[in-house]
């Protein structure tokens, strides 16, 4: 049953042009395009373009998938009545949720390998097994955190239009203040302030550090981890609350 549901979930994803654009088309294309512009720059920590932006764009894809194809998709199914129709079939809710989570993990992992592959070809990114394992493991943790945060946020929406506008705006804000377009310290002060409150910014910083084997426990990294964990905790509480109200 799970395999079957997963097959259909992936099929539905592949047929939604809107999801494809925001997940596995725009971010890899931007990664390539920016690489031709800034390929020779040196970034914070003495890192080159590929070292900085490969993890960033993997994270951006993950963000797109988890917010559009996972969170927004749930709102859409809820509001047009698909969820209601499915809910009276004997299929366990757990199976549906699990399939949806697996779907996201499969697509984000696909994004991971896609960007990594582009990086290897275009920017001579090297494959270091130990680093790769650490990065992929950390990526899974970020994936889990984003899934929880996204579930909580989208559980609040009851209209597709509101959810759509929100998704597009949050994608823009997330992208700019998360450090995906340009380093945040080159941005105006107000963007830097937003960045401090943007969990994606913190995820991005941590992921770049882990990716390049530069992760150290200091005030900055502890603050980032603490902030992300705080967001996850609040999301979990919110999900419990929404679940109780629905009952």
């Amino acid at each position: 049953m799970l395999v079957n549901q997963l097959k259909y979930d992936l099929l539905l994803f592949s047929r939604e042009l809107f999801y494809l654009i925001f997940t596995i088309i725009v971010p890899p294309a931007t990664y390539l395009f920016m690489g031709t512009l800034y390929g020779d720059f040196t970034y914070a920590g003495g890192l080159n373009y590929a070292e900085t932006y490969t993890p960033s764009f993997i994270l951006l894809i993950t963000f797109g998938v988890v917010f559009f194809a996972f969170g927004f998709d749930q709102v859409m199914n809820r509001t047009i009545g698909v969820e209601k129709r499915i809910s009276i079939t004997p299929v366990p809710k757990k199976t549906l949720l699990l399939s949806n989570i697996l779907k996201s993990i499969i697509i984000t992992s696909f994004g991971y390998f896609l960007v990594f592959f582009i990086g290897m070809i275009v920017h001579d990114l090297s494959f270091v097994p130990l680093n790769f394992v650490a990065s992929f493991g950390f990526f899974m943790l970020l994936n889990a955190a984003l899934l929880i945060i996204s579930s909580a946020i989208y559980s609040l929406f009851t209209s597709v239009n509101a959810a759509l506008v929100f998704s597009i705006v949050i994608f823009q804000i997330g992208m700019i203040s998360g450090g995906f377009a340009m380093p945040v310290d080159m941005m105006p002060a107000f963007v830097q302030t937003i960045a401090d409150f943007n969990p994606l910014y913190h995820m991005n910083q941590l992921f770049i550090a882990v990716w390049n084997g530069q992760f150290i426990v200091d005030n900055q990294s502890l603050l980032s981890i603490g902030y992300i964990l705080g967001c996850v905790t609040i999301s979990l509480l919110l999900l419990r609350f929404v679940y109780k109200v629905k009952k």
């Binding site: 079957n4 549901q5 259909y8 099929l11 047009i80 698909v82 079939t89 299929v91």
Partner: peptide, 20 residues
């Protein structure tokens, strides 16, 4: 009634057959 809008008729039938 609403169903997944981007599934084909035969796919919907197969999916619901599996549900039951």
């Amino acid at each position: 009634t609403q169903f997944y809008k981007s599934l084909k008729v035969v796919e919907l039938l197969k999916l619901f057959k599996a549900y039951y």
